[in-house]
């Protein structure tokens, strides 16, 4: 067996694979270099297999959870701030849009009014005069009746209150007598 083959067998053996152990032992017994290499490999194997597990330091889990909590809070703050900024920007854009739209509407209306002013103003004055005259005639005709109606309403309201008060007092008295 050549040294190269023997070294492959050493690895296979350390991997836990089935190997021709007699052939390997025979080569190791005859080859000092492979024997030394094999001893080193076995020593490394022992060291690694015997090395203890390093325990997590005290309070480790608490420190991890504190970092998780801190990151979540930062994330929430950032998300909240972003939402606020986006909402403000959206509100601003909407408001600006509405203002531009309403201003243009106002300008259009003023423009229309100015163009129609020479004919519109006398017509408006006519309509307003007619309306005022109608209103005065109606008030003259209804004043006596309105006055009578107001007095009747007042009397009816006072009577209703007096009756209501009497009924409530009676019910209260009955409830106190028979609890």
């Amino acid at each position: 067996m050549k040294c190269e083959q023997a070294r492959s067998l050493m690895m296979a053996y350390l991997d836990g694979e089935p190997v021709d152990q007699e052939a390997l032992a025979d080569h190791i017994a005859r080859c000092p270099e492979c024997r030394e290499a094999w001893e080193r490999l076995r020593a490394v194997e022992r060291l690694l297999r015997e090395a203890p597990v390093a325990s997590a330091p005290t309070g480790f889990a608490g420190r991890v959870l504190a970092r998780v909590d801190r990151r979540r809070r930062v994330r929430r703050t950032v998300l909240g701030s972003l939402t606020l900024i986006i909402a403000t920007a959206a509100g601003g854009i909407l408001g600006l849009g509405a203002a531009v739209w309403s201003l243009s509407g106002l300008f259009q209306f003023l423009d229309l009014l100015l163009r129609a002013a020479p004919t519109l103003i006398p017509r408006l004055a006519d309509v307003a005069g007619t309306l005022l005259r109608s209103l005065c005639l109606t008030v003259d005709a209804l004043t006596a009746w309105l006055l009578l109606l107001a007095i009747c309403g007042l009397v009816a309201a006072v009577a209703a209150n007096w009756v209501w008060w009497r009924v409530v007092r009676r019910v209260q008295a009955a409830a106190t007598a028979h609890p």
Binding site: V53, A54, S55, A56, P57, F60, A61, V64
Partner: peptide, 8 residues
């Protein structure tokens, strides 16, 4: 449960 495994 896994702190020692990860730390090691």
């Amino acid at each position: 449960a896994y702190q020692t495994a990860v730390y090691n």
